[in-house]
Structure formats: structure tokens, C-alpha cells
Design a binder for these strands. Structure first.
Length: 190
DNA sequence: TATGAGATCAACT
DNA sequence: GTTGATCTCATAC
């Protein structure tokens, strides 16, 4: 049984709207703990909801750097959320990792999260970071280097698309992508 | 099932 | 001083 191909950094050097749907079904692990990406959202610097919309700041500096790196920020003062930077040339766009289907290191994730139900381990951007142990220490880290591993999907899954979650600006644009029928989404698509 | 409050911080007005 | 790419727990229906 052949190992799935590792995603190269080039993969991210394209429009977020091309990268985001293709990430669905890929496998992400951090230190051997992780699972299959089932939900992401796309953010572009022309998008009022994006952190990079108003230009470069200390917090979002990674978004203005090369693609294939992680942008981690603190959400609501207490959570971490992780994005993958896309498109070079300072387009400052990124894909928000919103949910995984846990497949590896379930026990570690349960311990970090303090819950046992698999469904609650990674079904949300902050839960995902907590389960995988992602913090601001990983801000600016490359996804193709340890402790990260990212493997391309084996087959093309069925993708569902809808409006993004939890934002007030540009809330209507359908830039949320999910794996059809997955039980591990942060919220169902309609 | 649904709605609301609290946690807690950095960017922005 | 307000807001936000969130989650959890409590209380109400």
C-alpha cells in the first residue's frame, strides 16, 4: 500500500479559492497527532473579514510572507486558531483550518482536550488547535517540516460549500468548504 | 433545542 | 472603550 504523497510548499502558491477546496480530505498531523481535514475557510486580503484586510501588523505579519507557513492567532483572548498562508506576492491570503476527522493520536487529543468523544476533539478551529497542540509557538512554522506532516488526499472527495461561520463582515460569501456528510464538521452545511 | 454569559487579549476606533 | 475567524457551561423553554 503506497504512502500518500506529501504536499509540497508549491501547493499553497495559488489562489486561496483553489487551495481551500483541495485541502479537504488531506491528512494533517503535528508530532504524529492529527487527522483528515474536513472543513476550512478561505480569507483573502481583499476580504473585509480577513485579518490582513487593513494591511500588515505585527500579529498578521506571517500572512504577508511566503505560502505554506502557519499563521496562528489568539481568538477571543483564550483560544488559538491556525491558518495556512497561500499565494505569494504579499497577497496575504490564508486558509483557516476549522475541523479535522481525528485518525491518529486519539488518546493524546482526548487528554489535551479533556473530552472523550471523538466528535468533539477537532470540530472547530480552536478545538483543533488544542487537540493538535498548536499555539503561538507555531506561528510562522513551515507545514512541510517537523513536527508537521501534510499528506495529499488519495481520491477526490465530495465537497460542500457555504457561508463562513462566526463573522459579521462579508458573512454572505460562500468561502467555507467541507467534506460532504462528515460527522466532524464544526457546524452542518445547509 | 436555544439562548446567554464568562473567559481574556490585542487590534482598532 | 469596543469588538472579535470561539468554546463551554448554565439556565430556560
Amino acid at each position: 500500500m503506497p504512502r500518500p504523497a506529501k504536499l509540497r510548499r508549491d501547493f499553497f502558491n495559488r489562489s486561496v479559492h483553489a487551495v481551500a477546496p483541495e485541502l479537504i480530505g488531506a491528512t494533517l498531523t503535528v508530532g504524529g497527532v492529527g487527522g483528515i481535514i474536513v472543513e476550512v475557510e478561505a480569507y483573502h486580503h481583499t476580504d473585509p473579514a480577513a485579518h490582513s484586510y487593513r494591511g500588515r501588523t505585527e500579529r498578521n505579519a506571517v500572512m504577508f510572507g511566503p505560502p505554506g507557513y502557519l499563521y496562528v492567532y489568539r481568538s477571543y483572548g483564550i483560544h488559538w486558531c491556525a491558518n495556512v498562508v497561500c499565494e505569494a506576492d504579499g497577497s496575504a491570503s490564508a486558509v483557516l483550518l476549522r475541523a479535522l476527522e481525528p485518525t491518529q493520536g486519539l488518546d493524546v487529543m482526548r487528554r489535551r482536550r479533556g473530552v472523550s468523544e471523538a466528535r468533539l476533539l477537532c470540530s472547530g478551529p480552536a478545538r483543533l488547535c488544542q487537540a493538535l497542540g498548536i499555539t503561538d509557538a507555531h506561528n510562522g512554522a513551515a507545514l512541510d517540516r517537523a513536527p508537521f506532516s501534510l499528506y495529499a488526499r488519495a481520491a477526490t472527495p465530495e465537497i460542500v460549500i457555504g457561508p463562513r461561520i462566526g463573522i459579521t463582515k462579508a458573512a454572505e460569501v460562500p468561502w467555507r468548504y467541507g467534506l460532504k456528510g462528515s460527522r466532524f464538521l464544526s457546524k452542518p452545511f445547509r
